[in-house]
Write a protein that binds this DNA or RNA. Sequence first.
DNA 1: CAAATTGTTTAGCT
DNA 2: CAGCTAAACAATTT
Length: 243
Amino acid sequence: MPEGPVILLMKEHLQKFVGEKVIAVSGSEIEGSLIKGKTLKGIKLYGKQTYLIFDEINIRIHLLMFGSYEIDKQTKPTDNLKLGLSFKSGKAFFYTCSVKLLPNSFLETIDWEADVMSEVWNPEKAKTKMKKNPKMMICDALMDQDIFSGVGNIIKNEALFRTTIQPESLIENIPIKKLNDLISEARNFSFDFYKWKREGVLRKKFQVYEQKNCPTCRKPLNKKMTGKSKRTSFYCETDQKLF
DNA sequence: CAAATTGTTTAGCT
DNA sequence: CAGCTAAACAATTT
């Protein structure tokens, strides 16, 4: 269940291990000897990616579509375990995910301002990137991890509904005010998602994603594969305008 | 229970 | 070679 907000929650769950030494490493994805005995210096996020920072190197984890994690207790099958880290105060388990060791110099190549949930998120930069792709559909722009890092299909659908924009609208046709609203809502909804996920009420809060009727006009919602990425969009023909 | 899915990379084509 | 698309991969839910 890994859009940006879930990754932020994961980071908080992992925070207690910062400052501790890795006692043991399991999983065959990385060379454990390079990590064993090293101290976890910090955790950085970039969209859906998590970087566990050590001296010189870091472990990048991406949960992809079906990945998950557990803290302290392993209840899931070891078959799916890609990485396990033991610390003094507990353990971290990562399942069905992408795991890669990278040099810390790699972190300097990341555009941190593209992360919608980051404190350095730069909405103006996102706008500039979108304007460079005037023929792009807005549904594809939202899913573009170089523009809206951390946004996934749920956030895409809900942010478009909140701003009453039809997913197949072309960037060049969307009024600038609408575009500004959308950029704001991509971040706002991400934080609502985060709060609701933590409270365990996320699914109840969806207005269009996996829903049958428009909350505004009560008419049936459209469900359609949209854009180049062909990801499912849920939207209301009446209340969302095609620009 | 078949089908769908909160995602990304890569092979292979034009 | 750039640009695009289809395929591959995965586990859980409906």
